[in-house]
Design a protein around this nucleic acid. Sequence first.
DNA 1: AATTTGTAAAAAATCGATTTTTATAGCGGG
DNA 2: CCCGCTATAAAAATCGATTTTTTACAAATT
Lengths: 215, 215
Amino acid sequence: MSANDQLGIYDRLRRDLIDGHYRSGEKLAIGTLRDRYEVGLSPLREALNRLAGVGLLEQSHQRGFWVPELSRSALDDVAGLRRQLEGEALQQSIERGDDDWEVALVSALHRLNQVQAGFDTAAHEQWERRHAHFHRALVAGCGSTWRLRFLDQLYDQFDRYRRVAPAAERRRERLDDQHEKLVQYALARDAAGARALLDIHIELSWAVALKSCTY
Amino acid sequence: MSANDQLGIYDRLRRDLIDGHYRSGEKLAIGTLRDRYEVGLSPLREALNRLAGVGLLEQSHQRGFWVPELSRSALDDVAGLRRQLEGEALQQSIERGDDDWEVALVSALHRLNQVQAGFDTAAHEQWERRHAHFHRALVAGCGSTWRLRFLDQLYDQFDRYRRVAPAAERRRERLDDQHEKLVQYALARDAAGARALLDIHIELSWAVALKSCTY
DNA sequence: AATTTGTAAAAAATCGATTTTTATAGCGGG
DNA sequence: CCCGCTATAAAAATCGATTTTTTACAAATT
């Protein structure tokens, strides 16, 4: 509980849900959450409702909140839709992105690479944040608010699987390398090349995340 | 306040937001809502939070909730993304939909046509519900939970514009006719034809909804 | 005259207690 | 012995009051 106290209960819960702090399908007892996060019932319930709105929780009337089940089919669904939405968003970003977009993208990549070394828990937290931020920066220039909104939700869902999947160092290196190359394509305004690589990138990420499914 | 009392505050607010009962950009005073809907503060706030999660409201910390602004650019965004997501969903539905999907689709069309006559307020309410249900039935067989989830949100957004746009009877007839033809394509398992018509259908709907933007 | 600062009113957010609903275990009947 | 019913316990949902924050207005200073 160090820097957590600055964050609202919504952000803390969201992070813990994505990090796999709660088991797939687990029921969230509101009273228990209240004690654990040391918040009042009202802000807690409001956060749970908003999280249900963006698909990070499921809600049943008068019966409380659940963590959505992790499943192979749900992962395939998320990955497939992400590939489509992110691919087109990347293409549009490359076609329409301005100087500010380029700068933000380069910055996001640099920040991501800064933290690739030493993988203690805190550093990994930071890497996760910067990784998510990088992918958002890549597509931020697409000009479609709703596409970005949906992509945010899909990133979160995808990360739920990746976070609980076993480490895959060899593949992680290739993925990191692809981040570099994606930026090169983007700066060269090669939309087709970028999109082709992004498909590969998502497919490889999917293969890593797939290991989270015991089935 | 007839059948409204059976619905939860979330559904009542959602319907009123889509129906244009609140102005674009309007600030929602929580105390006023509490009196108008005759509900307690807690369920009201929880509903507002969930509505913010699905994009039917905007929220600013400690500053309350707003109705998202209607704008030409936002409508174009919603319509474009809807065309893409719904088109592919329709194609997959036609390729994968089973007998139950066909039955539900035919039922939804029939129910929609049953209410096309007499357009008083209550009948129009019913038509709106059945129209939304028809489009959901059309794509329900696609097999992608997340795609359907996002489409639901896009339908709601699109309807916000259509509901406040002036009536366009001539075009409405053509749109209703297209509903029939869409089902014919679907039952004939002609995915390409259905998708082409759906593009036309959405474009025509967009032209109608566009009249809601004063700009 | 414009900007800043202080104060009062209004609104949102939070809290703790109460009510309502659901789940569980024990009891009685088939 | 199993099924259904009731009583009890637990949990979620709701309420009304309180606290905190923001906003609007006015006075004072530059």
